[in-house]
Write a protein that binds this DNA or RNA. Structure first.
Lengths: 206, 206
DNA sequence: TTGCGAAACGGAGAAGTCTCCGCTTATCGT
DNA sequence: ACGATAAGCGGAGACTTCTCCGTTTCGCAA
């Protein structure tokens, strides 16, 4: 099942052009500047080409987000691996909490772009690569913490907490501080550990 | 500060007309039929009037949803009050679980309309009356279960689990059964109870 | 090379959402 | 009753997003 034949040279070139133009407009004019029309003009390309390459406005925005997600992922893994240990290696509960805290910062940092994405297509988030990878990572850690839990469900539940619209509402309308989001996630993680493996030993430290 | 002066008679009449027309179109043509243009025509009213009354497409859809939410709320409270006891009165944990289970059904039943609403405005959900009331109700029950927890945060977290886009993804793309959503919520509620109220030993982080 | 089919391009215009503003209507004080 | 005034109305058209399809380009094979 090799499926996808490679992109033709002109197509690849235009994809790059469009992404570059979009990044430029985003930096210069904010998320509002990402109108497909404007991007096409900036990239010296027809509107049709934008749609052929990215499907719709949401696709364009998600492509930009994937870029940032890749950078985030690389940065996160790098500091964890190389960072002189940080002393927490191995304990899945700590690792899960650290990952979630990093995600909170990621979401808060890119809130504007994420809101555009969610607005352009509220369902697309769950189908995209970033979500799938975050979900897989969290699911594994949950399984390590609470083997009997429905890890797939719980991973979605933790991530649901970071939906852009909700975060924006909490932070902007209700005055939440990001640290409160992190503390809340800690509670949820604690609950998962405590609530599902109550039998044997409490999941205490060594 | 009495604020809002009452709506003029013609305004109220048109609001009704528009809502009725919208409900009719929804029944006949599905959520796609809710184009402001079409609704205006069906209601014998100018497009401008639709926008004056409801602000935007999202506002129109949310108005329809509030109606259904009111019905849901009435039905839920009725069965709980009159329903021959059901034997569970008073225990907040059971009450919370029952409420959440009912919400799962509500969301699944109205998924299509909720998706349109979320798509029209991903943030509006959190500002609307249904969300606020559900949130308040859940928050109180959580406080009864775990007085030291950040009930406001946790209420959002439980409701985040029911975001239309996520539910649609789980049910339609990943084949979740609604009962799995209910079971997952039970786990989360259990975790809240176990993780935060130190019945025995705190499942203590350092 | 040259020819050919598949892929990609471009941009006019369809479709949908929303705004603007001149005109109409309701309400209230006199 | 009767203006005065604020509220509401309607729909043309601006603006955005997306589609459609005739034309161009690419890549392969003879």
């Amino acid at each position: 099942m090799s499926a996808a034949p490679p992109e033709r040279a002109d197509a690849a070139r235009n994809r790059r052009r469009i992404l570059d133009a979009a990044a430029r407009l985003l930096a210069e004019r904010g998320p509002t500047g990402l109108a497909p029309d404007a991007v096409a003009r900036e990239a010296n390309v027809g509107v049709g080409t934008v749609y052929r390459r990215f499907g719709d406005r949401a696709g364009l925005v998600f492509a930009l987000l994937e870029d940032r997600d890749a950078r985030f992922r690389a940065g996160f893994d790098a500091t964890r691996t190389a960072g002189g240990g940080k002393g927490t290696d191995g304990d899945p509960r700590t690792r899960l909490r650290e990952f979630l805290h990093a995600l909170v910062d990621l979401v808060v940092d890119h809130l504007d772009l994420l809101l555009v994405a969610e607005s352009a297509s509220p369902e697309a988030r769950y189908a995209g690569r970033p979500y799938r990878e975050q979900h897989a990572r969290i699911r594994e850690l949950i399984t390590a913490i609470a083997p009997d839990a429905d890890a797939e469900y719980l991973a979605d539940a933790l991530l649901a907490t970071l939906a852009p619209g909700l975060v924006a509402h909490r932070v902007r309308e209700r005055g939440f501080d990001p640290s409160r989001l992190k503390a809340g996630l800690d509670t949820l993680v604690g609950g998962i550990a405590a609530g599902v493996t109550p039998d044997r030993e409490p999941p205490g430290p060594p």
